[in-house]
Each structure stands twice: as C-alpha cells, then as structure tokens.
Amino acid sequence: MATAHIDNTSDASAADTVDQAKLSTDNAEQAEQTHFGFKQVDTDKKESLVAEVFHSVAAKYDVMNDVMSLGVHRIWKRFTIDSSGARKGHHVLDLAGGTGDLTAKFSRIVGKEGSVTLSDINPSMLEVGKDKLRDMGLVENIKYVEANAEDLPFPDNSFDIVTMAFGLRNVTHKENALASIYRVLKPGGRLLVLEFSKPTSTALEKIYDAYSFYLLPKMGKLVADDEESYRYLAESIRMHPDQDTLEAMMQTAGFEGTSYTNLTGGIVALHRGYKY
C-alpha cells in the first residue's frame, strides 16, 4: 500500500498540516490516492480503513458522542429533525445513520404509515443501533440496510427525506454519494447533511483546533481506549469541504434550493437541498 504519511504528531499548527494534506491530496489524486484523515491512502483502501475506525468505536460511540460534544450533538440533531419537515406517513432514509439517533425520533414522527430506513456501511454500528432502537421499543416502522452511500440499493424516487449526519466526510467519493442520494429522493424530497464544517471566527477555530487535535484523542484514549480512531475523526473533520464548497457540490449533484445554517459558530453546518 503506497501511503504518503504526513506526520501529525508534531505540534505544528493544524492548519498547516491541513494545507499540506490538501496539497498532497491534489497530487495524489493522479496516483488514485485519497485522504484518510491527514494520511494519504490508496483510494480503494479508504472504505475498509473507515470501516475499521467505526467498528472499533461502535460500542462506545454514543458515550463518546456525549463526552466529546458535551451533549451538544443532541441539539444539532434536533435542529436537523426540526428542519426536515417530517410528518406522519413520510419515508425517511437515515444514511450513515450509525447508532440511529435520528432514526429514533423520525420513527415516532412518521408513525406506522411511514417508515425509516437506517442505513450504514458498517454492520457493527448498525448492530448497536438495532439493539438501542429495540430497547426503546421502536420496531414497527424501521428497516435496517447495510449499504454504501455511494451506491444505494434503493429504487429511484423512494424517500421523502434523506438525512446524513456526520457521515459524508467519511465517504471516499462524496460526489457519488450525493448523486446516489439524489436518485433515491422523491421529487419534492429534501436532503439534510449535518456535518462538521469551518468555524466562522478565527479565534473559535484556534480553540477548536486545540480541542480536537489535543484533547479529543486523549479523551478517546481515556474513555474508549482508542486514541487513533479519535485522531482520525479530528483529522477527517479538517479535510472535509467547507460550507460553500459542500453547497456547490450539492448543486452539481442536481440539488436545488440549497442553503446551509451554521451551528455553534460553524463548527457544524446543516446543508439542505431539494430535488424538484
């Protein structure tokens, strides 16, 4: 495996490292490489590397989410659901849905006449999600589908709403995922992408860098005994396209009426787009 590893253990500024990584991403693309956090890996290896990360964090994923975000991820997810316009009878796809936080709420909103499909590429995450949702008594209207967002196994025009929370940045070819989502959305349907993004103020960005590159892996080690996975999470956040770039990508995939809302100073952004 030809990897152009970038040393990120030094105290060099995270922003510099991101720039270097982006540069080498550009160069590497010709050699069919892509980024995995700040590292360069063969494009066809990224999927299994991401799978390893989520397999390893699955059991402690919910606890870590609360610890890392101090519970704020719940508010971001509520905001996503409140922006979805979901109602009784809707068919919702919670893509890269992991342990099913969004699925749980959608399931109660859409009721028996509707359905929620919890889909993820990773069977370990899906299994944790399935157990959790069953413990919550949510069984009737939820389907579980192991699938790659880049190639969704659903018929065209199947869903009223597709959500992808903190999933898109892990996908190797984001443009493929967006096109695939566009295909499975019904005309009039909407896509909501909740994802880490670029803080709107430099001061916040500095604090956030310090937090995610220093504190986050340490917390990962302490709580989940898994420093590497949480280092990947921090790095993958920096490598993810910023607000405007992602919006442009959505437009390229065919989405209309696109917009985004920055949450918590742009640490996270919710992007929306419609298929008309």
């Binding site: 659901i81 922006s83 985004y260």
Partner: peptide, 27 residues
Amino acid sequence: FFTAERIDISVPVNAPDTKTTTYKNDT
C-alpha cells in the same frame, strides 16, 4: 407528536432564504 409511550416536541425550522446561498443564521 404523540405515541402511546411519549411526547416528542419539535420547533419547526424554516430554511434560510434560498434565493441567496450566503450564510444565514435566521432559524
């Protein structure tokens, strides 16, 4: 939203002005 077990409370959020694609904070 009611189920036989619980109540879910939602405060629907409007999309930011879709005519422009600039950053909006109006929720």
